[in-house]
């Protein structure tokens, strides 16, 4: 298992390094889009407008969103590409189960993804003059968000395995996701608050915004909700993926017929 993890790490690192122009393009593109939005909002609102901690919250949401896109690209996008080049079926010939392979793969590239997204975050902070805090209490809610993100990515992977062509679905889906990272579920009340807990990744993202942008202390009750939310989405995603694998074995379309 450790051998496979290291092999996966090496594989993604080598491919990333070899195609670093794509990587740099991704980082610069993601940053520029945000900076463009920032400038145009400032222009519309007028020079006297102050974002305050709102800006900081938006930045946290945006960078989480970018992280989610990287993870989804890794699992769902990777699956689709591998079914095209023919390596996908080889993965299913491994004595490790397919979800183990894909999970190890995703964790291996997580370290790379986190580094990349930290780079994006720092760039945006430098450009907009935002000041975010990085207390160690950001780690548990980040874990909750990541669990949810992997769950969603596995669900999209199941879709990729079933449909083979998910590019269009993915790009529509991406904009739905931005909503999840920006809805202020923490300020919802009553039954809406309960609904907010059910949305994928939203409670964890809310906590992260609180901790990083508003300097709030961690609410352990909500953290428990966020972790539970993450775990449920993660398990559901993995289960969906296993179901898609069995279905494709029945239909004879695992590798893309």
């Amino acid at each position: 298992m450790l051998s496979l993890f290291l092999a996966e790490f090496k594989r993604s690192f080598v491919q990333l390094r070899r195609y670093s122009s794509e990587l740099i393009g991704g980082v610069v593109g993601t940053t520029i889009i945000f900076y463009g939005l920032f400038l145009s909002t400032q222009y519309i609102a007028g020079p006297g407008f102050q974002f305050g901690t709102r800006l900081d919250s938006i930045i946290v949401g945006y960078v989480l969103w970018a992280l989610m896109l990287f993870i989804m690209g890794d699992i769902a996008g990777g699956l689709q590409q591998e079914s095209r080049t023919g390596t996908l079926e080889q993965l299913f010939l491994s004595p490790y189960s397919a979800s183990t392979v894909f999970l190890l793969r995703a964790i291996a590239s997580l370290i790379l993804n986190l580094t990349i997204n930290l780079g994006i975050l720092l760039l945006i902070m430098a450009l907009t003059g935002s000041r975010l805090a990085f207390p160690p209490t950001l780690l548990p809610p980040l874990l909750a968000v990541l669990l949810g993100a992997y769950g969603i990515a596995f669900a999209m992977g199941a879709l990729a395995l079933t449909l083979k062509q998910v590019q269009q679905v993915l790009s529509v889906f991406q904009f739905g996701l931005i909503f999840l990272f920006t809805v202020p579920v923490e300020s919802w009340t009553g039954s809406a608050r309960f609904l907010g807990w059910l949305l994928p990744m939203a409670p964890g993202a809310g906590l992260l915004r609180g901790v990083m942008a508003q300097g709030a202390a961690l609410d352990w009750g909500i953290l428990a909700v966020a972790l539970l939310n993450g775990a449920v989405y993660f398990l559901a995603g993995v289960a969906l993926f296993g179901w898609a694998e069995r279905r494709m074995k029945r239909l004879g379309k695992l590798g893309g017929y």
């Binding site: 092999a7 080598v14 491919q15 070899r18 195609y19 390596t87 080889q90 590798g255």
Partner: peptide, 24 residues
């Protein structure tokens, strides 16, 4: 398997062999 070459195109022969060996 048929059609495609079952390899990672962005890796070298030695990297492919080592990766798939561990995968197997």
């Amino acid at each position: 398997l048929e059609g495609n070459r079952n390899l990672y195109w962005r890796l070298t022969p030695i990297e492919n062999l080592e990766y798939f060996g561990v995968l197997r």
